[in-house]
Amino acid sequence: MRTWIIVVLCLVPALAVAQAPPAAERPASELRKICADAMNADPSFSESIIMTINEETFRQHKTAGDAIAKDQKHVILAYAALWLLAAGFVLFLWRRQQTLKTEIAQLRRDLETASK
């Protein structure tokens, strides 16, 4: 489809130049009209342009919108970070408490045996 568009795009001006007297002498608006007429002469040409643009932009917008709307990655990342922080702190506290407990028990035992 694209190659067709390119071919048509190249052909239309070529035809226009070939048919008409020197272009420089004509006003710009007239040239534009000729060009537009030439393009409109082939209905499949304009249709193909519209289709291409529509599909492409629609796809892009949809992916971008979906990416933001269903952006679970960042939410999960944030919640995971919180879990990790909390779990790390609790683990640290728990292990510390265990070592302290054993140390206290040890010290108590030592003191008792010494006092006997």
């Binding site: 010290l107 030592d110 003191l111 010494a114």
Partner: peptide, 20 residues
């Protein structure tokens, strides 16, 4: 755990005093 830390410190001092 802070309270436990203090208890360890106190017990250690007691132990040092008792010579254990």
């Amino acid at each position: 755990s802070v309270a436990a830390e203090r208890e360890v410190r106190e017990l250690r001092e007691k132990g040092l005093d008792a010579g254990v």
